[in-house]
Design a binder for these strands. Structure first.
Lengths: 332, 332
DNA sequence: GTGAAAGCGCTAACAC
DNA sequence: GTGTTAGCGCTTTCAC
């Protein structure tokens, strides 16, 4: 049913290796053009495609990459994934995209699977800082590993300058005159959450002040909503700052239900600018946030991994003050 | 550096085929337990994993599936992809997830790539109805093809009952008393857009009326926003119905900028209930929409493809009247 | 109950 | 310039 290299060779009246040479453009120079033509004709006539498994076995290379993120339905990670995949595709690599669902056990299973698939590299956004063992096993096998967005000690990472950006955000808000800010942080085991909290604290403390309160969320809409409700009932916050936009959306919702308005009654800020596509910005123009160049993060991570550069990289971010996008839109 | 089956065999003092039998649980019954133990020990000690390429070559099966969607950053398709992948993973299949970016040429390139990867099946949300040729080539090669969400004649599909659901939506809105409804449709070459428009028309006409106007959008936020602006300036609509939620979000934004309020001044409806995760519903409780069980769509499509059932399937949908989710939340 | 041997489809070193 | 040949790592038929 399916043509093999031998059938192509027979039909063209040549040996299999000649066909192979044509396919891989090997000694295209030293080959009689008419031979090449005959081979190409046979390939076309038989609709021949090389069997990848045979190539991989023979070449001892898979040209495959694994991408493992905590949640592909989260726009942030979807854009990151796309960045990685685009570079991989350009360079002739096949990407295996996996979704750990924020579950370290699923993460471990997928790493196992990627190992079994003999990927040459893995680009990973880890669920936490736990299982370096699974990663070390990959490295021991010669698989290149590059972390994205979140750090784990001992592995290279391409990440945003979360701490610096968060400090800048804090300074911006202090400049607007807020004095009783409550911070909703993210999961303890995630470096981005920690960095953002630290950076924000840096800013507040350098002014001699401190945060009115810090609560821990889970980077989800619900957890932002619940935390904000609590804050609005008990604290006398003049601003609520969430460690990511998803939680900030929850805050906005809670503020709205309380009959308050942003920024008149209270300030609200997020982080990571989940929108990237226009609609969330349009829906929530009052949100102050920080843009993380997540697509570029994916591209850089893939490039470095493929180029064999095993060192880390920090990407710069952009502060998006509330209201900006609306203004831009109106001005166009 | 990496162990092969022969090394495992030598270390266990058996022949390679015995190791293979253990790995694949073949004649586990007729095997001396101590032999099996010795083999398992060697596997563990050498951290052995079979080379997939060799297995695939020998077995003449890849256990790989292709998933090709127009935009993985769109939550709708991300959830669909996840549904497919979950079933594939459960059954020991590897998924190759691809993103055509709504571009028929990229779509063709990815189909090519999947063919080269020797996938056993392709689950596809086509960009349009154009290139059946690429699909036919796959089928001719023995690759199973299952469409999702959007139809192309001649191929099986798992889709929502868009026409029926849209009719129900129309009847619901008519029941609320709207009389001058303007419809924003989707791209002409996409069956879902066509079906939704037809169904909505069915409803309005069965009451002896007709739509005040029909405009064509591109299923994007921007196109919904722009169309709504036009409508609000020229038509005297009492309701705007968009063929998907993304455009409906654009409509809501335009309505807001116009200083109008939903549903007091104007009704707004969407389709496909993009939220699925709580946050969009929370942010936009006033939107009336139709829930499409898109994760289940993915699971069903994968199951049917893997089970060799090459017939189509329509899934039922659920009407979500505006305001419902807020009410539910408050009640909890 | 286990082993020997062939071969899946391809590539590359070496012939000529 | 092109062909011959060996072998990548695995599974499976057929011996015994």
């Amino acid at each position: 049913m399916r043509a093999t290299i031998r059938e192509v060779a027979e039909r063209a009246g040549v040996a299999p290796c000649t066909v192979s040479r044509v396919l891989n453009g090997h000694d295209a120079e030293h080959m009689r053009p008419e031979t090449k033509e005959r081979v190409l004709d046979s390939i076309r006539e038989l609709d021949y495609t090389p069997v990848r498994a045979a190539q991989r076995l023979r070449r001892q290379r898979t040209h495959a990459l694994g991408i493992l993120v905590p949640d592909i339905t989260n726009l942030y990670f979807a854009l990151l994934t796309r960045g990685v995949e685009s570079v991989a595709f350009e360079r002739g690599f096949t990407s295996l995209i996996c979704d750990s669902s924020h579950d370290p056990r699923r993460e471990a299973r997928y790493l196992e699977m990627l190992l079994a698939e003999d990927v040459e590299g893995v680009l990973l956004v880890p669920t936490g800082r736990g299982d370096a063992s699974a990663l070390k096993r990959l490295v021991a096998r010669g698989v290149r590993v590059m972390l994205m967005d979140r750090r784990i000690v001992g592995f290279p990472v391409v990440e945003a300058d979360n701490r610096g950006a968060s400090r800048a955000l804090g300074e911006h808000l202090l400049g607007l005159g807020y004095e009783r800010m409550v911070y909703i942080s993210g999961p303890a085991e995630v470096s981005t959450a920690e960095d953002r909290l630290c950076g924000f604290r840096d800013a507040v403390r350098s002014e001699g002040g401190d945060l009115a309160d810090v609560r821990r969320g889970a980077f989800t809409f619900e957890s932002g909503f619940d935390a904000a409700r609590e804050i609005l009932r008990h604290d006398k916050a003049d601003a609520i700052v969430a460690a990511n936009d998803l939680m900030a959306f929850g805050v906005l919702r809670a503020v709205e239900e309380e009959g308050l308005s942003v920024p008149r009654d209270i300030g609200v800020a997020g982080f990571d600018h989940v929108p990237h596509v226009p609609y969330a910005t349009f829906l929530r123009p009052e949100l102050t946030t920080v843009d993380v160049p997540v697509h570029e993060m994916g591209r850089q991570a893939a490039r470095r991994l493929l180029d064999g550069k095993a060192d880390s990289l920090q990407l710069a971010t952009t502060l998006i003050p509330g209201g900006t996008c609306i203004a831009r839109r109106r001005g166009k």
